[in-house]
Amino acid sequence: MLVSLHDDPPILVCADLQVEYLTPGRRHVILDGDAATSRCLELLTLWRDNLWPVIHLKRIAQAAWFNPASKLTDWIGDLKPRPGEMTFEHPLPSAYSSARFVDYTSNIKNFRCVLLGFSLDETVLATVVDGFHRSHRYQVVGDAVACRHPGSGDAAAYKQAVMNVIGNFASVQASAELLRTSGAIAV
C-alpha cells in the first residue's frame, strides 16, 4: 500500500541516537556507525524540512554498564531533538517501557512509524515486537539502523539475523526504496 508522505506522513522514530553507541572501546559500540549516522541524518533532515512528526527515544537503563549521569548518554550532535520534537526515555529495551510513550501511542488512531537508529538488537527489536502486539505498524530502515558488535562471530551475519527476526514484526526497507520519486511511502 502506498500512502502520500505529504497527506499523511508516518512518524519518524529515532532510537537511541546517543554518544554511547559511537564511542570507540565501549562495550556497546555499534557497527557501521558512520554510514548509519549519515543515513539517519539524511532522513531526519527530510522529516524536519517537511515539518513531519519526529519522536526521539533515549535509553536510560539502570544496568551497571549504563551510567545515565555520563556524557555518553548525550544525544549525537546533529541528531539531537529540536524544540517541538517529542522525546521519550525508556528504562528497558522497548520504547513501550515508557509510560508516556504508551499513553502517546494509544491516543493515535492510525499509528504508523518509520524507525531508525541504534541498538538494533535491543531497542529496535523490542519496540517493533511490542508494537506488533498493539497493532502498530512499523517500518525499519535497514540502512539507517545499526547494532553493537556481537560477542563472537561475523558481525554482518549477526545484524542480518536480527533484521530477519524484525521482518516478522515490521516491514524492512532500504532508505532508497522507502522514499519514492512520487512522494509516496510504502507502508
Rank of each mutant, 00 (worst) to 15 (best):
F118K: 00
V128C: 04
H6V: 12
Q173D: 13
A157S: 12
A64D: 08
Q62D: 09
K71A: 11
F111H: 01
A186S: 15
C147A: 14
A99P: 03
R180Y: 09
D143G: 08
D34T: 14
S175A: 14
I76D: 03
D154T: 00
D103E: 12
P10L: 11
G183L: 07
V114P: 03
D7I: 07
A186F: 10
L17Q: 07
L46P: 03
A186H: 12
R26L: 07
D32N: 15
S171E: 15
T123W: 04
S182E: 13
E89W: 05
V3T: 13
L46Y: 14
C14S: 11
P9W: 02
Y96V: 02
L92R: 06
E85K: 03
A176L: 09
I185C: 13
A176C: 12
P24Q: 04
A186L: 15
S4G: 14
F169S: 10
N50L: 11
F111Y: 01
R148S: 09
D121Q: 06
P10F: 11
E20D: 13
A146Y: 05
A170C: 12
F66I: 09
R112Y: 03
L125F: 09
S175Q: 08
K80D: 05
L31C: 14
V141T: 07
S38Q: 12
R48M: 10
P10W: 10
Y138R: 08
L179E: 09
S38P: 02
N110Y: 10
V124G: 00
L46T: 12
V162H: 01
E20P: 04
N107Q: 03
L116F: 08
P53R: 06
D7S: 10
L5I: 12
Y138I: 08
A36V: 14
V114H: 05
H149A: 05
V172Y: 15
N50R: 15
A126D: 12
T45E: 14
S70F: 05
S94R: 09
V124M: 02
A63Y: 00
P93N: 05
S70H: 03
E177L: 11
G117Q: 02
P68F: 06
A99N: 01
S106W: 00
L17A: 11
A15E: 06
G131Q: 01
V128P: 04
Q160T: 13
N107L: 00
A126C: 08
W47D: 05
P53G: 03
H56M: 02
P91D: 00
E177C: 09
S106Y: 00
I108S: 01
F66K: 05
D16G: 03
E85R: 04
C14W: 09
V141A: 03
H90W: 01
D78Y: 04
P9H: 01
V3W: 10
T127N: 00
L5R: 14
K109H: 03
A64I: 06
P10N: 05
F101V: 02
L44I: 13
R82A: 11
A155E: 12
D7H: 11
G77M: 04
P10E: 07
S171T: 15
G151D: 14
I108T: 02
H90F: 02
V54K: 07
F169I: 07
D32W: 05
K80V: 03
L179Q: 12
A69P: 01
S106Q: 07
V19Q: 12
Y96D: 03
P53T: 04
Y104C: 00
S182H: 10
Y21Q: 10
R134W: 01
N67S: 08
L92M: 07
H56R: 01
E122L: 10
N168T: 14
I185T: 14
P83G: 02
L51W: 10
